[in-house]
Design a binder for these strands. Sequence first.
DNA 1: ATCTGCACTTAGGAGTTCTCTA
DNA 2: TAGAGAACTCCTAAGTGCAGAT
Length: 904
Amino acid sequence: MATEAFVKPVVPNGHDGYEDEDEDDIPLVFKRNSNTAATTNRPSPISNAMRNSAIGSTKSSPPMRSPLTSPNRSASSSTRSSMMKPALPSSSSVQRSTLKSPLRDDRSVVAKERNGFGKAPSVSKSDDEDSEDDKPLSARLKLDSKEVTKQPSSSGRGSTQQAVQKSNMRPQGLSDYTKKKVLDERAPMSSTVQTKTSVGTSSSKPVHIEQKRPLVNNIDRNGLKPKTEGHSSQAPAKRPLEKGSSSNQSSVKRPKLSEPARPVKVEQGSHISATQDAKGKNLDASKPLRANQATVKEDNSDGDDHVPIASRMKSDSSNNKSSSAKPSSSKMIASSSRTIAKKPNKWVKDSKYSKSSKSLPSGDGQKKWKTLQHNGVIFPPPYKRHGVKILFQGKPVDLTPEQEEVATMFAVMRETEYYKKPKFRENFWNDWRKLLGKNHMIKSLDDCDFTPIYEWYMQEKETKKQMTAEEKRIVKEEKLKQEEKYMWAVLDGVRERIGNFRVEPPGLFRGRGEHPKMGKLKKRIRPCDITINIGKEAPIPECPIPGERWKEVKHDNTVTWLAFWSDPINPKEFKYVFLAASSSLKGQSDKEKYEKARKLHNHIGSIRAAYTKDFNNKDVTKRQIAVATYLIDKLALRAGNEKDDDEADTVGCCTLKVGNVECIPPNKLKFDFLGKDSIQYVNTVEVEPLVYKAIGQFQAGKSKTDDLFDELDTSKLNTHLKELMAGLTAKVFRTYNASITLDLMLSKETRDGDVPEKVVVYQQANKEVAIICNHQRTVSKSHGAQVEKLAVKIEELREQIKELNIDLDRAKKGRTPLMGSDGKRKRNLTPEALEKKIMQTQGKIEKMERDMQTKEDMKTVALGTSKINYMDPRITVAWCKRHDVPIEKVICKELQQSNRIANT
DNA sequence: ATCTGCACTTAGGAGTTCTCTA
DNA sequence: TAGAGAACTCCTAAGTGCAGAT
């Protein structure tokens, strides 16, 4: 599917006006900013459709084509729909959903399509299915349907407080709600869709998920399923699990196997010259980013633009066939080159692209730049004493400036959740006490009253708020004036913006989730803590604090950082100053990331076939690798590196604990764990029977806190993945599945219509990707009030319609209208005028209802992260061109301008 | 074979600015 | 025109994964 999209970035399309601007595509692609486009209020039908399309095929991923191309589409969808219906969540489930995490459900749908897996892929099957390649994905989808059942979610994790909170934060309602809506709107499709949806997050692929992830309800946590069979493993755990929930970690993992990575570079290339940005602006040729643009353009020449990526995939895949599942890196490269070669135009373009690209990103030891100049970093201003005293046992206490500064850090956090957390208070007290000294009169934190400082702080805030616009402008300009010199670097002669040129100010550490170090004092960073990296020929930045000096000045052009210091919270780690996301270095890195995802598209079939084959491998390690890869592919799970005990207890695929996965007969798995940033992942999916069986075997004989994959760690997993495809690591699957999903959804759901309608399609696709990746956000504080407000307005409008109908009846009889509810006499309107007014009011109600539903649907879904980090911008650009959608409608200006590639 | 350091990407929330609506 | 809410930026925590050291 998306393959092509990946393959060729750009769009081709013939589309008219855009053609000239093709380059636009390019630039966009590698920029990083993202923003979510504004979301529209309409309910999206799309989602339903998407769901419908779930691919059932188990096969190893057949190449996908663009649904658009296929004529059968409707038929297929109908079929699906029928299947889906059953899957639909019951209304009750919908309600429950509120509690659950919405994400999951939706994900599943998409996932299925993506992977083509709705079910477990059987290798053989897949092969057979190749014949279907020419069909649109949607057509090929199977209806697994069942899956969609909602689950009661439970968030099972009740275990940790946090978990609970999270579940609350992300009520499932959304997904369920959405689904329901969808169904209602398009019955047929929805039915189809359902299937997918069920899966939640990952769904995509293979499994069906039950999906709904009703967090709340699930009370059972991941208990193991009885099934356990087998053997088990050993496995001591590194970290004790806490409660059954996610947090447990335990296991001891094995050493990582390191494998020499093969450089994946795609060579081809050449590079680009000046290009234009999406808007047709001239790009700076000097920047490397441009290359991308050029590439894109050429692609356009292919004329494929009008073809959705998905549809283009087939050809690619065929090309790829030459490459075996385990191509050596060189082989892989070769294959990709070949593919490109088929299309001469593209080839040329691609090659330019490659050339333009710079060296690989991090870790490759290659030179990242030739010359680098910058002015160092800017430090926060010294602490300014306010003199407000806290109370200890009711009495004012004198504090030194240093003690007062830290007390203020704590006082201003009074309204945050941290303030109440024992761990936060304990860590803060331990650090503050050191500053107070042994003989200080303050003997305990609980006897301290920080209210005076808090009130002072609030007043300062209010004062600032009351400043006039002019005053604010002046302050802003002054700040800009001071910072201007630190904001830019000149890399290889090109002026590039620096990302975080401000040194982090001192404060209290705000770790996410139940971080063991929350509340600790993050000390002030001084010049003597900072190492500067700059070109040999460039002048060494002057230390901005008189009398002090940098810790060290280096001239290392194999790295991209401009400065770093040790993290005061975890001295083993560092804080780096890098160029901004819009820089050429970042753009290049992004380009490589998306190219790798494209490459994966060409190998995904054989990779899926390979892991499917190993589901019942006698070698436990191989079986674990197969199952873990399947989960990463299907559910878009993160790899799951080992963590230290002084970090929040979160897990990824390789670090899943037995208690994080519950087997639900006959072949469903319920996942419940805390992932990155302690975001809860709850999802029930239907998996291949062999996977289900294997999970039971991995759990057998272990406690809930033991590692599920005790024979595995990310190093081993990635070593294995690299044997399948050069440069392949676990995270590539996330990028791949996100981009493919975007492409698939856009291809499938875009219909003729006006721009706003198309933008809705894009947003829905973005939403699906966010769901797959489990990108969540907390519900805004004002959400409830906003929804309530809309509900009140809708009710008022309904009352108005009632009155208007009465007036209409009277008008038809030649009578005057009744008095208004406000006691005033209403105008005498003709029946026609009244009918028109009724229609208008009805329209308003419908719009508000859509707004309300969209608001509800999106309240826990964060679109920005996927847009910035996972969705290949070339897909977006190509789609915009094909459908005459101004790029700024889906990607904000900032993003477009950021030059990551663009140009700047 | 493992461990650890390092470099870089990915992430959600707070704060700020822009835009829409009454 | 003010206020509300959406959109966007900034901040920095928390991941991934490579490579060299042990």
